[in-house]
């Protein structure tokens, strides 16, 4: 099944400058594994120690996946996934 994934600028060096790539998987975790086979290196930019990185936001359709199961979130054909590096900082 095909899932469309939107890739942010900072990761496009891994996707041959593609803004949108396609992958497959029953869960987000499977999708990341599939993407990493197509675009080696992408998994470690998204996942650290079996969890999504704190300052990378991943959305399943319009939902932040942290609220719908994280890496275990179930995917369906035609879903859209968006990867967005968090924008954060502070004076300290």
């Amino acid at each position: 099944m095909a899932i469309e994934v939107r890739i942010p600028t900072i990761l496009r060096n891994l996707t041959n400058d593609e803004k949108v790539v396609k992958g497959s998987g029953d869960t987000l975790s499977d999708l990341v594994t599939d993407l990493d086979q197509q675009y080696p290196g992408i998994a470690e930019r998204l996942v650290d120690g079996g969890k999504l990185r704190r300052f990378i936001n991943v959305y399943l359709n319009d939902e932040d996946v942290r609220f719908v199961g994280g890496l275990e979130a179930k995917l369906s054909d035609g879903d859209n996934v968006t990867v967005l590096p968090a924008v954060a900082g502070g004076s300290r």
């Binding site: 932040d64 967005l84 968090a86 924008v87 954060a88 900082g89 502070g90 004076s91 300290r92």
Partner: peptide, 10 residues
């Protein structure tokens, strides 16, 4: 500290 709200950001 600041951080974009994840829903608004999307």
């Amino acid at each position: 500290f600041y951080e974009f709200d994840s829903t608004e950001y999307k």
